[in-house]
């Protein structure tokens, strides 16, 4: 396909350039502003700081406890991603590689979750977790995240369907039990899928706001998204502290994005092409 050099396409490139410049400008402004003091910010919210200072970072990390919130996010997200990967891949494996009655019904059943977002069932979930004493715990959150597996299930299901049955049979002949087959034969082959789903799930859970908002109200378990929102809500009082919080909140994901963007895209687009 020839590269189009007509004016029309160059114009589109130009518009996109502006769009991208806006994004970069926002990010850079935020980074610069995080190194300014309140009075410097009052002077001008944009622009390179004159005397860059780390005070804001020190303030939020050590005095306000932002470090704790970030650690909470890290711990919660990592555990939850592991749980989601385990549960969704096993479920998808069970439904993809065995034939039994009610198989199709279960497949459709799990895909229903794609249509109904978690917000609709939040009240009963809250009441249930409350009864179990799991509000304000990571365990409760992990349970909720592990239940919300329609999308990962869908990706794994498609992937497992494609694996050749010959491998399975060979392993069975060698006397391996079912779980061994799953763990030692099929998983390694599906590793790329795990990475992709893992990355997408990580981004989604790290950025999650609604569930932590409802279930993590005690200060010692709050996540980074809640902390940033708290600074935002008190914008006028603490607006110099919002900037470093945002920078720290966004940094891990930008790093993940730089290294994993293509895998993420691969995973997201897995469902939309007719194979």
């Amino acid at each position: 396909m020839n590269r189009k050099r007509s004016k029309g396409w160059n114009f589109v490139s130009f518009i996109l350039l502006i769009y991208v410049v806006i994004v970069l400008f926002l990010l850079l402004s935020t980074v610069f502003a995080s190194f300014k003091t309140k009075s410097q910010l009052a002077e001008s919210i944009v622009g390179i700081p004159n005397n860059p200072t780390l005070n804001n970072y020190i303030q939020i990390l050590f005095v306000d406890g932002f470090l704790k919130y970030m650690l909470n996010s890290v711990i919660l997200t990592c555990i939850s991603v592991a749980a989601v990967l385990m549960v969704s891949s096993m479920t998808a494996y069970g439904l993809a590689r065995y034939r039994f009655k009610g198989r199709y019904f279960l497949q459709m059943f799990f895909l229903l979750g794609l249509m109904f977002p978690i917000q609709l069932g939040i009240l009963p979930n809250f009441l249930l977790l409350n009864k179990l004493g799991l509000v304000n715990t990571f365990a409760g959150m992990v349970l909720l995240y592990s239940a919300n597996i329609s999308f990962p299930f869908f990706i794994f299901f498609k992937a497992f369907q494609k694996l050749p049955a010959s491998l399975e049979e060979a392993a069975r002949i060698d006397g391996a039990n079912e779980f061994s087959i799953y763990f030692r034969v099929m998983l390694p082959i599906a590793r790329p899928v795990f990475i992709t789903v893992g990355l997408i799930t990580f981004v989604n859970l790290w950025n999650d706001f609604y569930l932590p908002l409802v279930f993590l109200s005690k200060d010692n378990v709050k996540t980074m998204t809640l902390a940033i929102q708290k600074y935002l809500a008190n914008f006028l009082k603490n607006w110099d502290l919002v900037f470093p919080a945002v920078v720290l909140g966004v940094l891990p994901l930008i790093i993940i994005f730089i290294f994993g963007a293509d895998k993420i895209v691969e995973g997201l687009t897995a469902g939309s092409t007719k194979e």
Binding site: V87, L128, A147, I149
Partner: peptide, 15 residues
């Protein structure tokens, strides 16, 4: 065994 954990979680916390 593969399906049960996911199924239980899904039914209890989603459906």
């Amino acid at each position: 065994w593969f399906i049960l954990p996911g199924l239980i979680l899904y039914i209890v916390f989603m459906m």
